[in-house]
Write a protein that binds this DNA or RNA. Structure first.
Lengths: 179, 179
DNA sequence: ACGAGCATGTAAGACGTTACATGATTAG
DNA sequence: CTAATCATGTAACGTCTTACATGCTCGT
């Protein structure tokens, strides 16, 4: 699946929950999907225009002069359904931390430990964030049919953060034998 | 840090372990760093040429007529050191599975479960691979000064696969309340 | 009146992948 | 001798980010 389709999927998905302006869409993608998805500003507008041309979204009068609210149409919902059912395309991973650790002999053990401790601190903060997010969302969206689905994505973040923390501990132990 | 610098880091890092041809470099990046890094073919050659111009790598006679072996130079080692010490730039994550699950109400619970089970199977295979890799590398590179560093990256893969498996179980439970 | 935040868009350029084109060497 | 693999490179194309340019609206 081309990257463009993935952007369409995110945009249509967001609009399927609520009609909004392009600006709000950008913020929703950043703030709501941000933990596992991203779209840059320069992608959202052209995609929205393409979707409008294809009749997948509808432009309505916005909250201000010169602004528009976009709403998903029936064909747009069908298109979203199709996109969601397409096979998942995985983007090749690029983990700067692991790349540095792999060349740790050149980088030096002290700096490696620093990087790992930094990662641990980040993961701990992230874990706390996910736990608070889980509480907030469970309370705010109680009873929403979207809730269980949203919770699976938050759960993924929590598990990932936890595994990162566990890994840093093991990594530090592994490096003890190295210095 | 520009993406180009990251490519340089991977290339110089690989050459710091062993001089090799561009072709071997490509395979090494795919097969050895592949679990956490990737460079496409079209990036490696231009980067290598740039590094040669800058005197960071040296072109020597290769194993065949018309082929070259590249070796890192002293300035190249210094450059690698600098690159490794630059702050880590994280590429924004794009997780197609989580994006689909977030819009799971539209996708439908049955298909969501399928996707999660697929992810579980992948993670289990991946976990087995990492465990075998850990055994192989520990045996083959026993005593190498690089071993502990390499093991931290394998450990990261293992922890990640484990957390993915644990997450899928929780996600399935969460969705039981949804259908 | 003015600054912060809402709102829309374009354009340049960097980044990255893929397909193509070509040839040498070696194993069977 | 011929197919597979080693080996080198280019060109076209698509993707993505960043910076820029513009204007409205609301609170103070």
């Amino acid at each position: 699946m081309a990257r463009r389709s993935q952007t369409e999927m995110a945009v249509l998905g967001a609009l399927s929950m609520q009609p909004m302006t392009a600006y709000a869409l950008r913020e929703a993608i950043r703030d709501v999907l941000g933990n596992f998805w991203s779209e840059s500003f320069g992608q959202i507008y052209p995609t929205l225009q393409a979707l409008e041309r294809q009749g997948h979204v509808e432009r309505r009068e916005g909250p201000r002069a010169g602004s528009s609210t976009f709403a998903i149409t029936a064909p747009g919902t069908a298109r979203l359904h199709d996109l969601l059912n397409e096979p998942i395309t995985t983007t090749p991973s690029r983990n700067g931390l692991l790349l540095r650790l792999f060349f740790g002999r050149t980088l030096g053990p002290a700096r490696c430990r620093e990087l790992i401790l930094q990662a641990r601190a980040d993961a701990e903060r992230s874990l706390a964030d996910y736990e608070e997010l889980a509480r907030t969302v469970a309370a705010e969206d109680a009873g929403s049919p979207d809730l269980p689905y949203i919770m699976t994505t938050i759960s993924a973040g929590r598990h990932n953060a936890q595994s990162l923390i566990a890994w840093t501990d093991e990594a530090l132990t592994l490096l003890d034998g190295a210095s």
